[in-house]
Design a protein around this nucleic acid. Structure first.
Lengths: 192, 192
DNA sequence: AGATATCCGAAGTCTGGACTCCGATTCTAC
DNA sequence: GTAGAATCGGAGTCCAGACTTCGGATATCT
């Protein structure tokens, strides 16, 4: 990919814009304005549009990066000792993470449709990784066998979106998750 | 409230606008335009604004009416024979209902904040009615005692919103609900 | 340091959607 | 049937926010 030498300030701006956009869209959802991203990134609005031809493209870039990161985390957990802890832990992590990233929770469900175009592929990657965590946890007897990925992922999305939008305090969120996890646990709950 | 005699066509338009708005906002969320409401209602856009001074006021009126209706349904279930069936049935009904009403699911969570102003009161009424159904189901042993309204309502909102936005097919939705309901059931699951 | 291609940002344009004005229309009272 | 007032609706106004333009600034190469 021998791109012509890109000036270092341009590359730095690119990264900074992406970081700021993740934060801004995380707080305000996709309703947040491009101008705010530019202002917080300390650049002009034209610079934002030079790096990302459209607002949708910027949002998409943010989502792809975030999904990829989450997928990597999920895949890393596939090697850990306790499959059950890995699955439930990642579930909890994702929900808590989404709580501060409205746009993320909003877009997660895009894996079902194609709400944000190319982000769909990255979203599917994350979904597959969750599927792998789920399958491993089921083989280990930590999750009931009759639970399948579609409904488990739907629960994950549901909890993420709700955590992101409503002002759930942490305790309520954990209690709600506990109920869901209980529903996912095989009938005679293990030691617990 | 001896309002001055309002012309019958005005009253008819008021009702029709409200009906159409419920449908339009139900499908497109609050992003739907006021103009579309006017067009489908067969009136000019000015007429819409004459009856509801602002778009937010219209959305609010739709929400209040819908919340009130749901609350009445919930309260009616308080007299039925099987408290467990009443609670789980209403939960399921609300989620299925929200699936076709994006704006409703979106606003349900407003009960936590005050996203839509006066609709909050109606939303709180619905929440209280759900609380009553929950308490009765718990007394009957159909729902675990340590589940409290905040997290149960959070689950209700979560499932409603997800059903509304993602393209969940009915079967997946039911399977996800089954998992949640299982989590809400007291430890040694009854007959099932 | 100097030349120059690249990059930046302030000040625009343009579009979509909320909201208003006013002549035409329709209901109601007599 | 007609006067009169309430209501209607199409043609605006206004604004916010996405996107563009172009002179000025800056990094890179020699």
């Amino acid at each position: 990919m021998g791109e012509r030498t890109q000036r270092v300030d341009a590359r730095a701006n690119h990264g900074r814009i992406l970081d700021v956009a993740e934060d801004v869209f995380g707080r305000g959802g996709e309703a947040a304005s491009t101008e705010e991203v530019a202002r917080l990134a300390g650049v002009g609005i034209a610079t934002v549009f030079r790096h990302f031809p459209t607002k949708a493209a910027l949002l998409q870039a943010v989502l792809v990066r975030r999904f990829d990161r989450l997928r990597e985390q999920a895949e890393a957990l596939l090697d850990t000792a306790d499959p059950g802890a890995a699955f439930y832990g990642f579930f909890r992590h994702l929900v808590a993470d989404a709580a501060t990233k409205i746009a993320i929770g909003d877009a997660l469900l895009g894996a079902g449709g194609d709400v944000h175009g190319a982000a769909t592929e990255a979203g599917n990657g994350l979904r597959r990784a969750v599927g792998a965590l789920l399958a491993r946890a089921q083989r280990a007897g930590a999750v009931r066998d009759d639970a399948e990925l579609p409904e488990v992922y739907a629960l994950l999305v549901a909890m993420s979106r709700t955590a992101a939008h409503s002002s759930l305090d942490d305790e309520t969120r954990d209690r709600a998750l506990a109920i869901v996890f209980d529903g996912l646990t095989p009938s005679p709950p293990p030691t617990r």
